Simulated scan of single mutants.
Amino acid sequence: MQVLDRRKALAVAPLLRLAFRPMFLAGCVLALLAVPLWLAALQGVLGSWQPAGGWLAWHRHELVFGFGLAIIAGFLLTAVQTWTGQPGLSGKPLAGLALLWL
């Protein structure tokens, strides 16, 4: 993390100091919820109910736009400060981005 002002950086909650932290956490929580749901759907535990487009369409959507987007965004937003020399997102803007993903 590029620290330009140490006091300002320490004022931000540790979870929101670097972009990979909330995004990787969100991706992991999504995986923890989606895998059992997907297994239950495959075993027929949920009965005849299906999301719009069917289970395969839901799985494709949550994999690309859920898990994949969170992990890629977390990595890129953290790495961009090394690549460009500019500070990355942290604090309230990062929290807003994580909420937007959610």
Rank of each mutant, 00 (worst) to 15 (best):
S48A: 15
A11W: 08
A26M: 13
R21K: 14
L56C: 04
R6E: 15
H59M: 10
F24N: 00
G54W: 06
A95W: 07
T84F: 03
G96H: 09
V29K: 03
Q86C: 08
W101N: 06
A52G: 11
A57Q: 10
A73Y: 04
R7F: 09
A41N: 01
Q86N: 09
R6D: 13
V45F: 12
T84K: 02
F24W: 15
D5F: 09
G54K: 05
G27A: 15
R7I: 09
F75C: 09
L42H: 09
L77W: 10
A34F: 12
G68A: 07
G53R: 06
V3R: 07
L94A: 02
R7Y: 08
F65K: 10
F65Y: 15
V3L: 11
L16W: 15
L39I: 08
P22S: 02
L10F: 10
G96W: 14
F67D: 00
L37Y: 09
G53K: 06
P51N: 04
L63P: 01
A11P: 06
L102H: 08
Q43D: 14
L16N: 01
V29C: 05
G27N: 04
L76K: 07
M1H: 11
F24P: 00
G88I: 00
L77H: 10
G54E: 05
G88C: 02
G47S: 03
L56I: 12
W83G: 08
G47T: 01
P14L: 06
A31N: 06
W83K: 06
G96D: 07
L63W: 07
L18K: 06
Q81F: 06
W55F: 05
L16F: 15
A41C: 03
Q43C: 09
K8R: 14
L10R: 14
R17M: 05
L18Q: 12
G47I: 03
Q2C: 10
L18G: 01
G47A: 03
G74Q: 02
F75A: 12
K92Q: 13
S48C: 07
W55S: 02
T78W: 08
L46K: 03
A11E: 13
L25R: 02
A26P: 02
Q2M: 14
L46S: 01
L99R: 11
G74I: 02
L37F: 12
V35W: 08
A11K: 13
M1E: 07
R17G: 01
V3T: 15
L99Y: 08
A19W: 03
G91Y: 00
G27Y: 03
T78P: 00
P87D: 07
A57G: 04
G47K: 05
A13M: 08
A31H: 05
L97P: 01
L46G: 04
L25S: 05
L99I: 12
V12Q: 02
G66F: 04
R7T: 13
V3W: 07
Q2K: 15
G85E: 04
L4E: 12
G66D: 05
L30Y: 12
L32C: 14
L76G: 06
A26E: 07
M23G: 00
L15C: 09
D5I: 08
L76P: 03
A98Y: 00
L97C: 02
P36L: 03
H61C: 11
L56Y: 09
L18W: 05
Q86D: 07
A26H: 11
L16E: 04
F67M: 15
A9Q: 13
L30N: 08
A31T: 12
L69R: 10
L25C: 06
G85Q: 02
T78Y: 09
L69Y: 14
G85Y: 02
L30D: 09
A9L: 13
P22F: 03
